[in-house]
């Protein structure tokens, strides 16, 4: 799983990701855990363990955050555009403060350098692939934690 994740991450963002030493794979999910949690064994399979880093080959906000300085494809959004992005709106060109790399996948950040989600560029449209505002969208809760 980690090999597939690393390959896709490198393809999308320009560099292989740093994955924390203390991690665990549960099903198709990769979690960052505390050192003490790594030394524990459980009788039952937990629902979740620690902080989600990736689902399959799809990175979560935490993995992007850990690798922020290595990301080659990044779009920085202005304040208004960043807010709209977290409401799952697509990105307008006038909302882009800075664009680095050639896509088609970009990490979305605000002007403070905080990870907001992932943008996909296709057919001249910057679409909202996933964002931290999914917390508020009940229909998304069944699909993905980012």
């Amino acid at each position: 799983m980690i090999n597939n994740l690393s390959a896709k991450f490198e393809k999308d963002f320009g560099a292989a990701p740093i994955i924390p030493e203390n991690h665990v794979i549960l099903g198709k999910s990769l979690f960052e855990i505390s050192r003490e949690l790594k030394n524990m064994e459980f009788r039952f399979k937990p629902l979740a363990e620690g902080l989600l880093l990736a689902r399959g080959a799809n990175p979560c906000a935490r993995l992007l955050e850990l690798n922020k300085t290595k990301l080659r494809n990044v779009i920085v959004l202005n304040e208004k555009s960043a807010f709209l992005f977290t409401c799952s709106r697509k990105v307008m060109k006038k909302g882009i403060v800075k664009k680095k790399g050639n896509g088609p996948v970009y990490a979305a950040m605000n002007e403070k350098g905080e990870i907001l989600g992932i943008i996909e560029y296709r057919d001249n449209i910057y679409s909202n692939k996933v964002n931290i505002g999914y917390y508020f969208e009940e229909n998304k809760m069944d699909e993905v934690i980012f």
């Binding site: 960052e32 949690l37 459980f42 039952f44 937990p46 629902l47 902080l51 979560c60 809760m141």
Partner: peptide
Amino acid sequence: RLKSQLFNLQRLGVKNATTFKI
């Protein structure tokens, strides 16, 4: 409520908690 918990713990960056549906 567990769905909300998983979202909350993720959002808040908690890495030392293990959740069981028990």
